[in-house]
Computed example of a mutant assay.
Amino acid sequence: MAALFGVFCGFILIIVLFTLRLFFVVRKGSGYRPGKKGSVSVLVVAGSGGHTTEILRLMGSLSESYCPRHYVIADTDKMSEDKIRTLEASKKQQDQGNFTIHRVPRSREVRQSWSSSVFTTMNALLYSVPLLFNLQPDVLLCNGPGTCVPLCLAGLLLGILGAKKILIVYVESICRVERLSLSGKILYHLSDYFFVQWPSLKDKYPKSIYLGRVV
């Protein structure tokens, strides 16, 4: 019974995601470009392990105009904060200090059941909404950790309410050659820009953008 309830809640969550995206597409301004008048505030979702390594490689290639930089990691992640601080310490002295690190509950643990992940994702969403309203970044950048789904949903909510248009940029992990990750399957329909790193994925998902390996 609990499993059926979890599947039902998951179905409802998917409907909510697509509905939010529909409203967002109707409301957004076609000429919106962050950074027209200067720097671009970016919120980066760092997962654990390979996800963090890939997203930090991407961040290392961006110019200093991307600031301030807000990193979000799961509250059970023990290693990503050190990697983030190491990257930021390597930047030019005048650019150091233009970053913050925030923690939110993990939306789904490895091998966690589908039914229980619905509730943990909703819990993560409750933390993500006030965080996004407070930071109001121009761009939300992510590459697949489950934590990014509630954060992207919160970003869409800001646009729907007219508080802030946030561009959602998703970069699928390099290890995804034939199939998208679960986060990718969801955010393929919600993101403004969806990058894949293998031509086989571009063939399957025409909305995606293929530029070769980017991380």
Rank of each mutant, 00 (worst) to 15 (best):
D192T: 04
N98F: 15
T100F: 07
T76M: 01
R108Y: 02
P137T: 06
E81M: 10
T86I: 04
G162V: 11
E178N: 14
T120G: 05
E88L: 06
G97V: 05
K207I: 09
K91A: 06
L153A: 14
K92C: 04
P105I: 13
T86E: 15
F119L: 15
D138C: 07
K164N: 08
C175G: 15
G144F: 06
L182S: 12
R108A: 02
K204H: 03
Y127F: 14
G97L: 06
N123W: 05
L161A: 14
E178Q: 12
T76F: 05
Y193H: 15
Q94Y: 13
V149H: 02
F119S: 07
S115Q: 10
K202W: 02
S113K: 09
D95H: 10
S117H: 01
Q136V: 02
A124H: 06
T120W: 05
L140K: 00
T100K: 08
S128N: 03
T86N: 13
L190H: 07
P206K: 06
K207Q: 10
V171W: 05
W114T: 06
F119C: 09
V171I: 15
L131V: 02
K91T: 08
P150F: 01
C142N: 12
N98W: 12
S116L: 13
I174G: 01
Q136R: 15
H189M: 11
L161F: 15
S191G: 12
L87K: 03
F99M: 01
P130Y: 00
Y193E: 15
P206W: 11
C148W: 01
L182T: 13
E109C: 03
F119R: 02
G144K: 04
S80Q: 02
L187W: 07
G184P: 12
L201E: 03
G155V: 03
E172M: 09
K83V: 07
P199I: 07
F99E: 05
T147W: 00
E81P: 00
Y170W: 08
W114P: 02
K204M: 04
D138N: 13
V169C: 12
S90I: 01
L153D: 01
D203K: 15
K185H: 12
L156R: 08
Q93R: 14
H189Y: 15
